[in-house]
Write a protein that binds this DNA or RNA. Sequence first.
DNA 1: GTCCGTGCAAAGCGTTTGCAGCTTA
DNA 2: TAAGCTGCAAACGCTTTGCACGGAC
Lengths: 143, 143
Amino acid sequence: MHQDFESILKSSGQSVTKPRRAVFDALTRADSPLKNGEIAKLTPSIDRASVYRTLELFAKLGITTTTIRGWTPFTELAEPFKPHHHHMICERCGVVEEIESDTLEDMLTILASRHHFTLRSHTVELSGVCASCSKNLPQPTSL
Amino acid sequence: MHQDFESILKSSGQSVTKPRRAVFDALTRADSPLKNGEIAKLTPSIDRASVYRTLELFAKLGITTTTIRGWTPFTELAEPFKPHHHHMICERCGVVEEIESDTLEDMLTILASRHHFTLRSHTVELSGVCASCSKNLPQPTSL
DNA sequence: GTCCGTGCAAAGCGTTTGCAGCTTA
DNA sequence: TAAGCTGCAAACGCTTTGCACGGAC
């Protein structure tokens, strides 16, 4: 795992450094997407600026993917460090489930090629109400 | 169109005000998602704070949807003010094409129900290389 | 006439940047 | 050893908040 991570850095002409290892480790231990600030807190020995520079680099290299909730970006590891997946979020209780579907992936590739694009990455975020919430609150509040 | 917009506000117990009309108009005129700052610039007579409060309200009411590029949120009108669609972005030249597919929509609903979720909203963002860019630069640069 | 929403101004954060010194390759 | 990366610290810009006034219903 770490070997792959370091290989990616090296093959892009980038150095393997303490901050980069620390951020990668923090993302590896996390079981859900993290805010920038959360990543910084998990790597207290690393300067904030380095965390940001590292996250920017990881995004460029495709090591991580970024999604948004509200107006806040969340980062998590991408393939091959984490199985490719998407998110299904309950808007009532906030629970996040991971979703995967080869059929979906195939369809996205086809959709892209219809537009004469070569698909390189994508995000799919679903939002709704989970089973237990819709059972407990059958009448949704308007706001 | 505006009538629908004002109906949504009223039926949620919200007032129809000058800032809300101005932000809605700016979004209506835009042909692509806008950054918060861009919306503020398009509504110079409205205080920034009101623009932010309005955008937050619109998101809650489902009048707008938000996507992210890099770490920057972009807002655009949602249904019924704009046909439901997704984005296909060229990572070389930045061109954005709108994508729609009923089959995709159906599949997402099915996927959600497999996880016992009632799907209420979703975003799909595709990123890749458009036809003209892949013709001009057949060998992608590593960074 | 009430209540909600706005404008104003200030504070609060998250993010970015310049630079000298250290680490990596 | 040379180039790249980090830490530090300051600056920057976006976003949020409190409050008194004004507008919507």
